[in-house]
Simulated assay, not measured.
Amino acid sequence: MKYHWIEEYILSKVGINKDFKKEWNWNRYLLKDKMVAAICKDKEGKNIITLKCEPIFGEELRTRYEDIVEGYYMNKVHWNSVNLDGEVPDEILKVMIDQSYELIFRSLSKKVQREIGEYK
């Protein structure tokens, strides 16, 4: 995996917990019980990270970078997978992680958002 900083970056986000979904062989990064990111291998054995993005932004990224594709085993409109041995710039990957976190955070109830905010 080329992006050795990814796990530390994701885990630095407030409220994120990591688990391992044995049935899927996925490392998942969760905010409460909602997935923000998953690191796994695709059907070809490539290391990938799957992240949620705004649909228009995700489509633009898939057009610009061949190492970004529709989400592996996820909703193809909202989720995108990045080849972790590819050539996506670090800054783009950080923006994708930040956006995935923000989208999941905003999907939580205001009460839960406030609870997470107290961790800061």
Rank of each mutant, 00 (worst) to 15 (best):
M1T: 07
K2P: 04
K2D: 03
Y3L: 02
H4K: 14
H4R: 12
H4N: 13
W5G: 03
I6V: 09
E7P: 06
E8C: 00
Y9D: 08
I10L: 03
I10Q: 05
S12G: 08
K13G: 09
K13E: 03
I16K: 05
I16C: 04
I16G: 04
I16Y: 03
N17K: 15
N17T: 15
K18V: 14
D19M: 13
F20M: 11
E23Y: 13
E23W: 10
E23N: 14
W24K: 11
W24G: 13
N25M: 15
N25K: 15
W26R: 11
W26G: 14
W26H: 15
R28T: 15
R28A: 13
R28K: 11
Y29K: 03
Y29P: 07
Y29E: 05
L30N: 12
L31I: 05
L31D: 06
L31T: 02
L31H: 00
K32C: 11
K32D: 12
K34N: 06
V36D: 01
A37S: 08
A37Y: 04
A38L: 12
I39W: 05
I39F: 09
C40A: 13
D42F: 02
E44C: 09
G45C: 03
K46Q: 06
I48Y: 01
T50N: 06
T50E: 04
L51W: 06
K52G: 02
E54D: 15
P55Y: 05
G58S: 02
G58K: 02
L61A: 01
R62C: 07
T63P: 02
R64K: 13
R64V: 09
R64E: 11
R64M: 11
R64P: 09
Y65C: 06
Y65E: 02
E66C: 10
E66W: 06
D67A: 07
D67F: 03
I68R: 00
V69G: 11
E70S: 15
G71N: 05
G71T: 06
Y72W: 13
Y72C: 07
Y73C: 13
Y73W: 14
Y73S: 13
M74Y: 00
M74Q: 01
N75K: 09
V77W: 10
V77M: 12
H78T: 09
H78N: 11
W79I: 00
W79Y: 03
W79Q: 00
N80F: 10
S81I: 07
V82R: 00
V82S: 00
N83Q: 08
L84G: 04
G86M: 01
E87G: 03
E87H: 04
E87R: 04
D90C: 06
E91V: 09
E91Q: 07
E91M: 02
I92F: 02
L93M: 05
M96F: 00
I97N: 00
I97Q: 03
D98W: 07
Q99S: 14
Q99A: 10
Y101E: 03
Y101M: 08
E102I: 15
L103P: 10
I104D: 04
I104V: 12
I104E: 00
R106Q: 15
R106Y: 12
R106L: 13
R106V: 12
S107M: 03
L108F: 07
L108T: 06
S109W: 06
V112T: 12
Q113K: 07
Q113L: 06
R114M: 08
E115S: 00
I116H: 02
I116G: 01
G117K: 08
Y119P: 01
K120D: 14
K120L: 14
K120Y: 14
K120Q: 14
